[in-house]
Design a protein around this nucleic acid. Structure first.
Lengths: 196, 196
DNA sequence: TCCTCCTGATTGACGCATCAACAACCTTTG
DNA sequence: CAAAGGTTGTTGATGCGTCAATCAGGAGGA
């Protein structure tokens, strides 16, 4: 199984080595065994779910996870056309990240970029027919996969508990400072389609 | 908030566009609103927790997340020295990934590599004094951060529910095929120190 | 011994994310 | 109108992960 890193053994070793800080001071310090199991389970999920989703998309549709997210975002828009910055906000990404990705996706013929008529700085991102057919073909398999790995193994009560826990942790992260990319985005409603 | 991609609206649009597959056939199809909330919450966590942990480490200790994991793994070993392949297995990583990372870490003076005496192919990875002091200095802040964002906002019952949900999803992923890197690893016990 | 096969580890190419400039374009203000 | 300042988006450098190819060392069989 994976290495741990949050409990007491190596702390003792660390302090024995003479560099650790005061053992009893500061916060609650190391995780107890029960907490450690929680953390390991969560970290394991973190390390496996996203790659698994990406793999499924790549294998079945030739799309990377981020590419799917962009296509899905566009496909959900009534206009089928979104300002670059708006898309970045909807996705909770930085402009730079989206720009790099859009360049690659444009080269693949998945999306098209055009200067916005009303604001010369803006870029309108639109789905090409290719992109349209790719996302439409990819979505059902993606949703099936999510259903299979996330929803099928959990009871509705467990699902709700998971949602609540995720919310609480996300909130704690946001109020802890160390975030900008994901947290800056608006908390408006979001589309309803083949969400990545 | 983020784009969705797993529910019905864009499906309708997709099918209206004439490329979607049979609407009523196949599996359970799109997520309902409740499920969608669960999925969005989970995905939000996926997108925010790992980066937040990485940021904290980078800011407070100048370490990347993976670097911390490697140092922690080494610091937990009684010998303070681990075979490269063993470490890869403990971390649930591919050899290649670890090799690239070790090269960079060696350049920074965090770890040292030496050929294994008994098996000429093997590499013994050891903590340098620098690496030792870096991990010892980094661990408390890392654990504090994990405690603050994951454990403080949850009741013990919620923590257990989270653990259970993570386990179930991870299991589903593993039995769904699309994984190798994380899942190949042994499920033996794991260390106890400053787990990343 | 020599050949084959397996395993351990490295390398190079590529996709992707982040950060720090930078360029282009509004918009506000004097 | 013109200068200042804020947006919007792009670019280049760098770090990181994956994949496929490769090299080096060890183990078993003729």
């Amino acid at each position: 199984m994976e290495a741990s890193d949050t409990t007491a053994a190596s702390a003792a070793r660390a302090e024995a080595a003479g560099v650790g800080s005061d053992p009893s001071a500061d916060e609650g310090r190391w995780l107890n065994p029960r907490e450690r199991e929680v953390w390991l389970a969560l970290r394991h999920l973190l390390w496996s779910l996203q790659p698994a989703v990406d793999r499924q998309l790549q294998r079945d549709s030739g799309l990377s996870g981020p590419e799917y997210s962009v296509l899905a975002t566009l496909s959900e828009d009534p206009q089928g056309m979104v300002r670059s910055g708006t898309a970045a906000q909807m996705l909770g990404w930085g402009r730079s990240r989206l720009s790099h990705l859009l360049r690659r996706m444009e080269a693949k013929g998945l999306i098209a970029r055009s200067c916005s008529p009303d604001d010369g700085r803006g870029q309108d991102i639109a789905l090409t027919p290719t992109g349209q057919s790719v996302i439409v073909a990819a979505a059902p398999g993606h949703v099936d996969f999510v259903r299979k790995v996330v929803f099928d193994p959990l009871t509705p009560e467990q699902q709700d508990a998971l949602r609540e826990a995720c919310h609480r942790i996300s909130t704690a992260i946001e109020s802890s400072g160390s975030c900008e990319p994901v947290c800056e985005g608006a908390d408006s409603d979001c589309g309803e389609g083949p969400t990545a």
